[in-house]
């Protein structure tokens, strides 16, 4: 519940204070949540956040649900197959997921709603990806996805 409220607050702050290109902080939150709480909860949280984002865009229900769910599932799957998770691996995965997220949303909006986003400058997507990766780097020490659950319990 806290993370859902956090998603609302993040979107509101972005809407009020960021007049130009903003990072996809929701994607960053979804990935950290999935790494921390597991695949099932991660996909559920991603679906809720995706639904909120779809509402903000007001075109279709689904593009952001799809993209964020795939991101949550994928990053957790990679985490389970990588023994030593570190910030570099995390940033590479986040770059990949940010690009995939943009591609999925764009494809869904164009194909299912008939909107034309072909003239949207590519530079916006590139800047968004860079900002998203930087945000992920800034929040990495806060969420510490490199720690396993047992390490977390010991620290507490």
């Amino acid at each position: 519940m806290v993370y859902i409220v956090l998603a609302f607050i993040v979107l509101s702050l972005e809407a009020v204070f960021v007049p130009s290109i903003s990072p996809d902080i929701i994607l960053v939150l979804v990935c950290f949540y999935s790494l921390k709480y597991g695949r099932l909860r991660g996909v559920a949280y991603a679906s809720i956040c995706g639904f909120i984002l779809d509402s903000v865009q007001g075109i279709l229900i689904g593009p952001n649900i799809l993209s964020k769910s795939i991101a949550a599932y994928y990053i957790r799957t990679v985490r389970e197959n990588v023994i030593q998770w570190n910030v570099f691996i995390h940033l590479i995965i986040m770059t990949f997921l940010s690009i995939i997220n943009i591609a999925i949303v764009r494809f869904s909006l164009e194909y299912f709603s008939g909107l034309s986003l072909g003239h949207n400058p590519v530079s916006i997507s590139i800047k968004e990806t860079i900002l998203t990766v930087i945000t992920s780097l800034i929040l990495y020490p806060v969420f510490r996805p490199d720690r396993t659950e047992s390490q977390e319990k010991v620290i507490r």
């Binding site: 007049p19 903000v56 764009r106």
Partner: peptide
């Protein structure tokens, strides 16, 4: 005006 679209699509 109370806010803007927080995504970068519109």
């Amino acid at each position: 005006v109370i806010g803007r679209d927080p995504t970068n699509w519109f």
